[in-house]
Amino acid sequence: MSALRAVKANARPFFQRHSAGELKEALRKMYLIRRFEEGAEEAYMRGLIHGTMHLSIGQEASAVGSTMALRNTDYITSTHRGHGHCIGKGADPKLMFAEFFGKEEGYCRGRGGSMHIADVATGNLGANGIVGGGLPIAVGAALAIKKQKRDDVAMCFFGDGASNEGAFHEALNMAAVWKLPVIFVCENNKYGMSVSTERSMAVANVADRAPAYGMPGVIVDGNSVADVAEAIAAATERARKGEGPTLVECKTYRTRGHSRSDRNRYRTKEEIDEWKAKDPIPLFEAELIAHGLATEDEVTAIRISAETEITNGIEYARTGTDPDPNEVTRDVYSSGVNS
């Protein structure tokens, strides 16, 4: 025990601030995200689910490192690549799978699919199919928080591509003018679909844009849970104290393509391999073990438990209830009134 404490004492603040239990839970969520997406990909390949999906494999550290700082009453808005944020915020993978399978048991009763999963009960205001769509919505949620005199925050995930949308400018400006509790989390994975940030931005970093709005812009290694979580903790504390928004840019990478249609013509195998070597999950595992916060056996047990949960989740979803075609327009209006 004293040896463990000694090791931990040399570690960076993140590993000291959180208990071993919290850190192992973070690892478990990273595994859940990874296995969830691998499971979804496989189910798609086997023709069990249709449509498209955007996988965040390789970006788990930013999803988990960011959401670790949040409470149930905090909000997130997410993106088309949002499975990780959703699980990070506390969603149940089996209900997410049910949504993928288009079942009534799914988070959106099968009406939303991968791109619209939300769980308002856990403060998840939803993924969004429109690039930049969630940015002003997060600002609105933060405005409500301020009006209701709560010390909650709204965390807004978006990609490098979204920072080129007009909505980004309008949202950041309003959040800053009104000093709203928003944490803008940019997951810069280098590509807006196929176009690199070098080809779509004249500045090197999305965070470089933050000073123009009078807010701090912080750049972190998006593949390091500790790096992400420390920056987010500071931004969240600032927001809760009423000091306004922060932009945190997580430099990361998606090792899969943009979506199912991606033929990978715009990047090299070398680049992908280089980033695979920086996979955030083994990196975090190694840190936990090095700091004496988890044993090899515990890590293995966590991985197996995540895999079991995913397998069970897929089975749960497969046997779910199909929606009634006569109920196409059911949820358009609250009263059921239509046309």
Partner: peptide
């Protein structure tokens, strides 16, 4: 968008 977000949040 702010109106949408504020409406979702009460």
């Amino acid at each position: 968008g702010v109106a949408v977000g504020a409406a979702l949040a009460g």
